[in-house]
Computed example of a mutant assay.
Amino acid sequence: METTSAPPGGRLAVPLLGIAQIVSWGSSFYLLAVLATPISADTGWPLAWVVGGGSIGLLCSGIAAPFVGRMIDGFGGRQTMAAGSLLMGAGLAAVGSSTGIATYLLGWAVIGFGMGAGLYDAAFSTLGRIFGASARRAITHLTLFGGFASTVCWPLSALAVEHIGWRGACFAYAAVQALVMAPTLFLLLPREARKAPSALDRAGAGTTTSRERRTFWLLAVILMANGAVQTTVSVHLLTILQAQGMQLVAAVAVGALIGPSQVGARVIEMLVGDRLDPTATLAWAGALVAVGVLLLALGAGPAAVAVVLYAAGNGVWSIARGTVPLALFGAERYAVVIGRLAAPNLMVQAAAPFAAGLVIAQVGTETTMAALATVAATNLVATIILVWRS
């Protein structure tokens, strides 16, 4: 990895942020996959409201993202990401001690603000500040860590629920975030000099020309469309596969291919990605997602092939969404731009699974998958236009 532009301590940044990503994704985004049912069973709260806590978290992370980008741009990621861990810890403690649905959802709002300062977008911005224009390989390595978040934390969460209950699991994660990750990030991430305020055009999301503004909004739409497809498939995949006649056990086995496929695709990108422009990598990722979703919608061939292609595309996409803004807008504006790109994307991700659930209930999975395939195909066209424009 190229580290010549990194400040002292920069070599620690990727493994440190990688561990932080595993803990943060596992104790926020992936938490309810294990805890939702035990929470609902223990409290009597409707499962839909329990799961809705995660949507509130994503919504709040989207609200926080532009502010987080400006903070990292001006001060660096050390303080900001440490604050994100503290917020996630406080939110998890609030969820664990909640006695009603209102305090439970409020806890998730706090977790969400922490997610905005602690997940990929903040980590990518931090790496941009540390490594500058050479951050692409660091971002790729970071996503390899993140790809193991569910693999590591789902079993740990299940073990915690079994032995100390869902509240104990929340308190345990809260302690790790507040007492371990926050001070570690604050003490060990490189200390960066505060940047002088820059005369960036706020209306153009940190860009300065009409061409850059058009590029920004095209990229924002591309990221939102893929975010909608990704979260919808992730949440409803088992429902979709079972509607196509697959038994639950088989559907779970096919779904388990997502993690290895994402990580495998990221390893390939790490080996050959330097030969491609980041926008070309984004286009290849979009093509894999579109083909995978189309095959899934048509029920053409083994579902495992469709899921592997889709997951591989999303694995590379998570890298490209960090490296493309760096290539298009430069290291100087990277943190501000990526923060503003993250806001609408995260809000769409918060709303898409709920909206898709309503559509599935009204018209079924076949029509829903046809719509998703259309969105993915259209998004691929938009991505090709972005490559051509750049």
Rank of each mutant, 00 (worst) to 15 (best):
T3W: 03
T3L: 10
V14G: 02
P15D: 07
L16N: 07
V23M: 12
L31Y: 12
L31M: 12
P38D: 07
T43V: 10
W49L: 15
V50F: 12
G54W: 02
G54S: 14
S55K: 03
S55E: 06
S55C: 08
L59H: 07
F67A: 15
I72T: 09
D73Q: 12
G74I: 01
G74N: 10
G76K: 04
Q79W: 14
T80Y: 03
M81V: 14
G84P: 11
A90N: 07
A90W: 08
A93H: 07
A94V: 13
L106M: 14
A109E: 07
G114N: 09
G114M: 02
A117I: 05
A123H: 08
G128R: 01
R129F: 02
A133Y: 01
S134V: 09
R136V: 14
R137L: 13
I139V: 15
H141A: 15
T143M: 13
L144D: 09
G147I: 10
A149E: 08
V152F: 09
C153D: 00
S157C: 11
A160G: 13
G168P: 11
A169Y: 03
A178K: 02
M181P: 07
P183K: 01
L189I: 11
R194G: 09
A199G: 10
G204P: 06
R211T: 15
W217M: 05
A220E: 07
V221L: 15
A228I: 06
A228F: 13
A228G: 15
V229E: 11
H236W: 08
H236R: 04
H236C: 05
T239V: 13
V249C: 00
A251L: 07
A256Y: 06
G259V: 15
G259Y: 00
V263Q: 06
V263Y: 00
V267I: 15
L271I: 10
G273L: 11
G273R: 02
D277K: 13
T279C: 11
L282F: 12
A287C: 10
L288E: 08
V289Y: 04
V289H: 03
G292E: 08
V305P: 03
A306T: 06
V307M: 03
A312C: 12
G315K: 10
G315Q: 08
V316D: 04
A320P: 01
T323I: 14
L326W: 06
A327L: 05
L328C: 05
E332L: 04
I338Q: 01
G339Y: 07
G339W: 04
G339F: 02
R340K: 11
V348Y: 11
A350N: 10
A351N: 09
F354K: 04
F354P: 00
V359P: 04
E366D: 14
T367H: 14
T383N: 01
V387G: 00
